[in-house]
C-alpha cells in the first residue's frame, strides 16, 4: 500500500510537471484526485485495512493528496501565467498605427474673437446687450448726435432700406436702445454685425463686426476709460502691451480718442504689421456726449459715461495674421480648420 502511494505520488509529480495545458493538468487532477482517481481509490481501499494499517496508510495518503493538490494549484498558476503571456504576445498591436479620428468642429474665428473680447469685459462686470441689425436712422445717427450732413450718412457710406431705416453702420445704436431702456448704472457691451457701403477688397468688407461698449454711472472719468481699455488690451494682446490714446472726433463722444496698442509682433520696434510705426490702431472711444445721454433721459449733471467701439475683423486679422478680410466670409474649411 505504502509503495502504491509512493508510486502514485511519483507519477503525479511527473505528470503535473509535464502538463503543458490547463486541460492536461485537469486530466491529471481527475486521474489522481477525481471520483475514480488513484488516490481516491486508495482511500476507498482503506476500509478493508486493519486498524494498524489504517493508522499507517491514512496519514500517508492524506499527505500525498495534499502534496498533489498543492502541486496542481502551483502548476495551474504557472500555466495561467504562461497562457496570458502567450495571449499578450498574440494581441500585441502596432501602437504607431493612427488613432481613431474624433474631429470636433471649430467656431468661426470672428465668433472666437468676439467671445474672447466679451469674456474680458464680462469679467469686468459688463453684460451683453443686443439690438437689431436693421435700425432706424434715428438710432443709428440722430440720437448719436451725428450732424445731418455727416458724410457717414451718405448713400455711398450707409445702406438704406428707406429714408428712415438703414443697416446699422455701427453697433453704437445699441447704446441708444440701452440708454432708453435702462437706468444707470449701465455697463454693457454689444457685439454684432454692421454694414457699410465698402466694395470688398483685402481690407474692406461691406459687412463686419463690432464690439461696442458703454458705461454710465456717477463719477465715471476719462481716466477710467483709459484704465478699462488698457486692461482690455493687456488681456487681449498680452501683458506687455502698451496703449496710446490720441485725440480724435466722433459725434457721439466728447472728448473722443483713438486707442493704439504697441505692435504685438515687434513689441513697438516697427515691423511690417505696424508699418514701421510700432503702433496699431485698434479702437475709437470717448466720454459719452451729453446729447446722447439726454436721448435716454439721463441726468447729465449727475451721470457721466464712456463708450468705445472696436472692429472685430481688424483685431482678428492682427491677432491671427490674416491678410485678407474676405477670407472670413469665404468659409473655406481649410481656413476655418486652422482656428482650432
Amino acid at each position: 500500500m505504502q509503495e502504491k502511494i509512493e508510486k502514485i505520488l511519483e507519477e503525479a509529480r511527473e505528470r503535473i510537471h509535464e502538463a503543458k495545458e490547463l486541460k492536461e493538468l485537469d486530466e491529471v487532477r481527475v486521474a489522481i484526485l477525481g471520483k475514480k482517481g488513484k488516490i481516491t481509490e486508495i482511500f476507498k481501499a482503506m476500509s478493508s485495512l486493519s486498524k494498524e494499517e489504517k493508522k499507517q496508510i491514512g496519514p500517508a495518503a492524506n499527505k500525498a493528496r495534499n502534496e498533489i493538490e498543492k502541486r496542481i494549484s502551483q502548476r495551474l498558476a504557472e500555466l495561467k501565467e504562461r497562457a496570458k503571456e502567450i495571449q499578450f504576445e498574440k494581441e500585441t498591436i502596432d501602437v504607431t498605427e493612427p488613432g481613431k479620428k474624433f474631429s470636433l468642429g471649430v467656431k468661426h474665428p470672428i465668433t472666437q474673437t468676439i467671445e474672447e473680447i466679451s469674456q474680458i469685459f464680462m469679467s469686468m462686470g459688463y453684460s451683453i446687450a443686443e439690438g437689431p441689425q436693421v435700425e432706424t436712422v434715428f438710432n443709428a445717427f440722430d440720437a448719436l448726435n451725428s450732424p445731418k450732413n455727416h458724410p457717414s450718412r451718405d448713400l455711398t457710406d450707409t445702406f438704406y432700406i428707406n429714408e428712415n431705416i438703414c443697416l446699422r453702420p455701427h453697433t453704437s445704436s445699441v447704446q441708444i436702445r440701452t440708454l432708453q431702456s435702462q437706468k444707470p448704472p449701465i455697463k454693457v457691451i454689444s457685439p454684432g454685425r454692421c454694414f457699410r457701403c465698402d466694395t470688398p477688397d483685402a481690407t474692406h468688407s461691406p459687412m463686419f463686426h463690432q464690439v461696442e461698449g458703454l458705461i454710465v454711472d456717477e463719477g465715471i472719468t476719462m481716466a477710467d476709460l483709459k484704465g478699462t481699455l488698457d486692461t482690455m488690451a493687456k488681456r487681449l494682446f498680452g501683458a506687455a502691451t502698451k496703449t496710446k490714446f490720441r485725440p480724435h472726433h466722433f459725434p457721439f463722444t466728447e472728448p473722443s480718442a483713438e486707442m493704439d496698442v504697441s505692435c504685438f509682433k515687434c513689441g513697438g520696434k516697427g515691423c511690417n504689421v505696424c508699418k514701421g510705426s510700432g503702433w496699431l490702431e485698434i479702437l475709437g472711444c470717448g466720454m459719452v456726449h451729453p446729447k446722447v445721454l439726454e436721448v435716454g433721459g439721463i441726468d447729465t449733471e449727475k451721470y457721466t459715461g464712456f463708450a468705445f467701439g472696436m472692429g472685430v475683423e481688424r483685431i482678428a486679422m492682427l491677432k491671427y495674421g490674416v491678410d485678407d478680410i474676405r477670407l472670413f466670409y469665404e468659409n473655406d474649411m481649410r481656413f476655418i480648420d486652422q482656428f482650432k
Binding site: 455697463k187 465715471i220 476719462m222 481716466a223 477710467d224 483709459k226 484704465g227 478699462t228 488698457d230
Partner: peptide, 12 residues
C-alpha cells in the same frame, strides 16, 4: 491723464 478703473457693480 491718469489710468484708473471705474468703481461700482461688477455683475454681468
Amino acid at each position: 491723464l491718469p489710468v484708473t478703473l471705474p468703481k461700482g457693480s461688477n455683475t454681468s
